[in-house]
Structures are given as structure tokens and as C-alpha cells.
Amino acid sequence: MTTPPFDPVTDEDIAIVSAQLGRPARNVVGIAARCVCGNPTVVSTAPRLDDGTPFPTFYYLTHPAATAALSQLEATQVMNEYNELLETDDAVRSQYAAAHEAYLADRESIALVEEIHGISAGGMPVRVKCLHALGAHALAAGPGVNPIGDLALERADWSPEVCECVDVTAG
């Protein structure tokens, strides 16, 4: 069995992610993307939480600036545009379906959870529902895997190439 490409999680990563989220990080199995400064940007979360809850969102965006930028982008109603693109562009629709399958394969390389089998995140494979999930997948998988996630990241007022971290663990 192969596992998705992510960094092993450290206690320091968990402390940073918990501070980023404003709550304890749960069931993080790896760091799927990092800021240029090294702080976590996307975590990989176990498909089943310790309390038994199925958790389909394998790639979870934690970086506050990225989260805010994608929230602002969602507020512009750009998802309507992306949904229309899915309806009208066969190549994008095909790539998006492949992104869905890649997401499922990554999550299932950690564990198969029957209750969420076939369910990915962000509305894949047929609609655009959550740019945070799609952006997280695009950051984790790299450019060219999730076309809608790539488009959202290109349009968002945030760049993975520029550190916007604050010392979230100070205090």
C-alpha cells in the first residue's frame, strides 16, 4: 500500500495547527502542504476520527491567510462560474473527475471507511461546493491535479509562495 506524499506530523506541527484552527487539531496523519516558512498549510486527517466519526475531508486547509482568501473568493459567487465551467468544458470535467478519484485513492491509502466510500470533498466530482477543500487538495497534490482548486488558488488573494504566517504559538 502506498501513502500520499505528506510529511510526518510532529508535536510542533500539531501545536501550530491547533493555534491556526483555534481548537485542538484532531487525528492529523500528516502535513500535506507547508508555507514557504515551513508552517503547516494543509493537513491530512484520518478518514475516521478517534471518536468513530467518519471524516471525508482528507485534505484540510489550516493556514489562516489561505482560509480567509478562499472565503473571500467564495463570497464573490465564483463557484457559480466554476460550476458552469464544469457543465460546459469536457476537459475540465474530466480532470475534475480524475481529481476526485485521486483524492479517494489518497484517503483510502490510509484507511477505507465504508460510510464515506466514494465521497471526496468540495463537491467533487460533479459540482463545486467548497473552495477550501478544493484549494487544500490542489496544494497537497500540486498543480495540474485539481483544476478547480488550481483556478481558485490562482484567483485568491493569497500565494503559497509568500509567507503570511503570524507567530500563532506565541503568547
Rank of each mutant, 00 (worst) to 15 (best):
M79I: 06
T76N: 03
A121W: 02
V43F: 07
I31N: 00
P54F: 02
E12G: 04
A111D: 15
N39Q: 11
L70C: 10
D50W: 08
P125Y: 02
L134A: 10
I16E: 13
Y59G: 15
A111K: 06
A33V: 04
D50I: 01
G149S: 07
Y60L: 14
E87S: 11
P56W: 06
I119P: 08
N83R: 12
I116A: 07
V78Q: 15
Y59I: 09
D106Q: 03
D90P: 14
E115K: 09
R26N: 08
S44I: 03
D89W: 06
L70R: 07
D50L: 04
L112M: 08
L73E: 06
E101H: 02
V17R: 03
I110Q: 13
L86N: 09
R93Y: 12
V126L: 13
H63N: 14
F58D: 07
V36N: 06
A69M: 13
D51V: 03
I31E: 00
E12Q: 06
N146P: 10
H137Q: 14
T41P: 12
R23A: 10
A133Q: 11
A32Y: 01
C37T: 02
D106A: 09
N146H: 15
H137R: 02
E74T: 05
L131S: 11
A68E: 14
L21V: 02
L49N: 02
R48C: 10
G135V: 00
Y60N: 02
R93A: 15
E108F: 03
C130Y: 06
Y96H: 08
A65M: 05
A32D: 01
L73I: 01
A68W: 05
